[in-house]
């Protein structure tokens, strides 16, 4: 097992290396660097100076090697476009907390409500309640979240007048600024949670319904066990296995946030920052953010495979390529 994880971590490292190379060379293949954008009106001399300052005058491969050596020491360079040129890691440390907050509340809402909805749907399967939950879950997973965001903005943000455009939607209740738990989070979290909530509800329904029909449940019933005992000890326990393997891995990628949610609600988090970095051609920032996201996604995959093996002993860690 440890061997398997180590091998996968090495693979992640390799993938990150390739991703970084691809992104770096593609980025630098574009005509027009970060300083020739728009009408900044630099004279050729000033431009050359600027490029020398940021090391852009050196050949691409040399810059890439420089980047790699410092990236290995967790130094991803300094931002080009953020005022004061702070190091990439500082900027990420500054913008990530908001995203993390939204992500964390989303996870709680999505998993909590999704689980309850799925459970109810499975227990009353093929009834009207089941149909409503399933339809809700389907809608939640198919309607894009920027569409839902726009609707919520139209209704609550603008018509009822809870907020101002391009600002946090609802004024923070617990003091000014980034309160830990404020009504600010209400609309973004609701919007962001719809998709994972739909997923959780669907998977819970499917696996609980399957467990309810299983032979061991019939046996438990025949034995005369109470409904509650059956649900808790037999159904839920077994239904949890497929759920955990599918749903837990969603967590890392919820934590890196959503571009659409952040742009739509004007949240200054990682996702919105990624979009502005791309429009500003802020090379070091793009690099840092892409690598961060790639790392979290790879972690998601690794977590999925590890959970499979840990939870279901029938699956063995196989040869090359990992479990399953």
């Amino acid at each position: 097992m440890i061997n398997f994880i180590l091998r996968r971590l090495a693979a992640i490292f390799l993938v990150l290396l390739i991703v970084s190379a691809l992104v770096f060379f593609l980025m630098n293949a574009v005509p027009g660097g970060p300083f020739s954008l728009g009408e900044r009106g630099y004279t050729p001399d000033a431009l050359a100076n600027l490029e020398r300052k940021y090391g852009l005058d050196k050949p691409v491969w040399e810059r890439y090697l420089n980047f790699l050596t410092s990236a290995l020491q967790l130094d991803f360079g300094s931002s080009f476009s953020v005022v004061g040129n702070p190091p990439v890691t500082t900027v990420i440390a500054r913008t990530w907390p908001v995203t993390l907050h939204v992500g964390l509340y989303t996870i709680i809402v999505a998993f909590g409500f999704g689980f309850i909805l799925g459970l109810i749907a499975a227990y009353y399967r093929n009834s009207i309640i089941d149909n409503i939950v399933t339809l809700f879950a389907t809608a939640g997973t198919t309607v894009p979240n920027f569409i839902v965001a726009t609707w919520l903005l139209l209704i609550f943000g603008y018509q009822i007048g809870w907020g101002q455009p391009n600002k946090w939607i609802i004024p923070p209740v617990l003091g000014a600024g980034n309160a830990i738990l404020s009504w600010d989070y209400f609309l973004p979290v609701i919007t962001y949670a719809l998709l994972p909530m739909g997923l959780v509800a669907r998977y819970t329904r499917a696996s609980v319904a399957e467990a309810l029909n299983a032979d061991y449940v019939r046996t438990a019933r025949a034995k005369g066990l109470g409904e509650r005992g059956i649900m808790l000890r037999h159904v839920l326990r077994n239904a949890l296995i497929p759920m955990i393997t599918v749903l837990l891995p969603q967590i890392p990628n919820l934590l890196t946030g959503s571009l659409f949610i952040e742009v739509a609600y004007g949240i200054n988090g990682l996702g919105k920052f990624f979009v502005t970095s791309i429009t500003n051609k802020d090379y070091p920032m793009i690099m840092g953010l892409v690598l961060l996201i790639a790392f979290f996604w790879s972690l998601t995959y690794l977590l999925t495979d590890v959970l499979y093996v840990v939870i279901d002993p029938r699956i063995r860690v196989g040869g090359r390529g990992g479990a399953i």
Binding site: I278, A294, W297
Partner: peptide, 16 residues
Amino acid sequence: IFTAVPPLLIALFLLS
């Protein structure tokens, strides 16, 4: 390699 980054982010980056 292509699945290391979400497809939408790849698209976003490539569009730039």
